[in-house]
Computed example of a mutant assay.
Amino acid sequence: MSDIDPILFPNDDRAQAEAAIAAMDAATVRHEAEHAGTRVVWRSAGQGSPLVLLHGGHGSWRHWIRNLGALALRHTVWVPDMPSFGESGTLTSPADLNHLVATTAATLDQLVGAETPIDLAGFSFGGLCAAHLAARRGHVARLALLGAAGHGTPRRQKAAMVNWRLASGEAALVEDLRHNLRALMLHDERSIDALAVAVHRQACEATRFRSKALSQSSPTKGILDGFSMPILFAWGEHDVTAHPDRVGPWWVDGRPERQWRVVPDAGHWVQFEQAEATNRMLLEFFGRG
């Protein structure tokens, strides 16, 4: 069965989306590592200092599909399907953040070395995971959090999500996924293209971790208080998961090594909707020092 419904998208768009995913998959090297009985699938690309990218909830490594090529020009980029996501194995508990982070960190260390300095970026729920991973592992030179979860402050979301699992038929399923992308992830209707739906569908269907309650909790500031490395906080201008002008200054907290940015004309999935601007921002940030 096709990942994109032919009624809703022209054949050329569907073919282009499938080709883009296949091409990026082929451009990466697939690795498997195991910790405490859970297998984690990582992918790497490029050459240079290691840069680790963590995906969001109901996500996979493909959350970074429009960023890997640019970032790999200067870094060896490492992207996992975190445990209980994508192709990776399933944790014994569907909502154990400590187990997820420990397994992600341990398998990363098997691949790059436990004391190897890394740069680290996390998107959405992956931002919360990145903060926990940096606190647990150490050896993080720079940290970037995009639309990061775990701030516990009011959100701007107006449209309710729908349960796509209850859809009757292929066309209804894809339309539900489009609705959820519109409600939470992407601002401009034109951004909800065949590639966005394909990435989102694959990730949703493979997710076995319950991240929502963790994402809406408020532990991130307390973790950040223990860090001294440079940190970048960034949100899309229309990110419905936060008020950037509230969370940004709060997390920067007057620290000169920290900064917060807003990317114009983007929703929550900022690195997809405004990929070029996000790539420039991340390359500049991780290229310093």
Rank of each mutant, 00 (worst) to 15 (best):
A121D: 07
N98Y: 05
G59C: 10
S88N: 12
Q110E: 09
W78E: 11
D119R: 00
L71V: 00
G56W: 10
V79G: 08
R74G: 13
M82L: 13
L68V: 04
L73E: 15
P80R: 02
A114P: 13
F85P: 11
D119E: 11
A95Y: 12
I118A: 07
H75G: 06
A102G: 10
A72P: 11
S93I: 00
S124I: 07
L68T: 00
T103K: 02
P80C: 02
P80K: 01
M82P: 09
G69S: 14
T104P: 02
G69H: 07
M82W: 10
E115I: 13
W78P: 12
V77N: 06
G56P: 06
H75E: 13
I65F: 00
I118K: 12
A106V: 01
G59W: 03
L73R: 15
F85K: 12
N98T: 11
D109W: 06
D96Y: 01
S88D: 13
L97Q: 03
F85L: 05
V77P: 11
G113A: 14
G113T: 04
H63T: 06
D109I: 14
R66C: 09
I118W: 08
A114Y: 09
A121L: 06
L73M: 14
L71G: 02
S84A: 07
L73Q: 15
T90M: 00
A72E: 12
L120Y: 03
P117T: 09
G113H: 01
G57N: 08
G69D: 14
R66M: 13
G122S: 02
H58N: 15
L97G: 05
G57E: 04
G86K: 00
G86H: 06
W61F: 10
A95N: 14
A72T: 02
A72I: 00
L68K: 03
A106I: 09
G69N: 15
R66I: 03
T107Q: 02
L97T: 02
A70K: 00
T92R: 05
T90V: 15
G122K: 00
V77L: 08
H58V: 13
R74C: 14
P94F: 04
W61A: 15
V112T: 15
A121R: 04
H55M: 10
W61R: 15
L108C: 06
R74Q: 11
G122Q: 05
V112Q: 02
L73W: 09
L108T: 05
G113C: 10
R62N: 12
N98C: 08
A106Q: 01
L111W: 11
S84V: 06
T104F: 09
W78C: 14
H55T: 10
L54C: 13
S88A: 05
G86Y: 00
P80A: 06
V79D: 04
T92N: 08
V79W: 07
H75Q: 14
V77R: 09
A114D: 13
D109R: 09
F123Q: 08
V77W: 01
R74T: 15
S84Y: 07
G89D: 04
T92L: 02
D96R: 01
V112L: 13
D96N: 02
L97Y: 01
D81N: 09
L68A: 11
H58D: 15
Q110G: 12
G122T: 05
A95C: 07
T103L: 01
A70R: 02
P117W: 04
F85E: 01
L73D: 15
F123G: 12
T103Q: 05
H58E: 14
L91S: 03
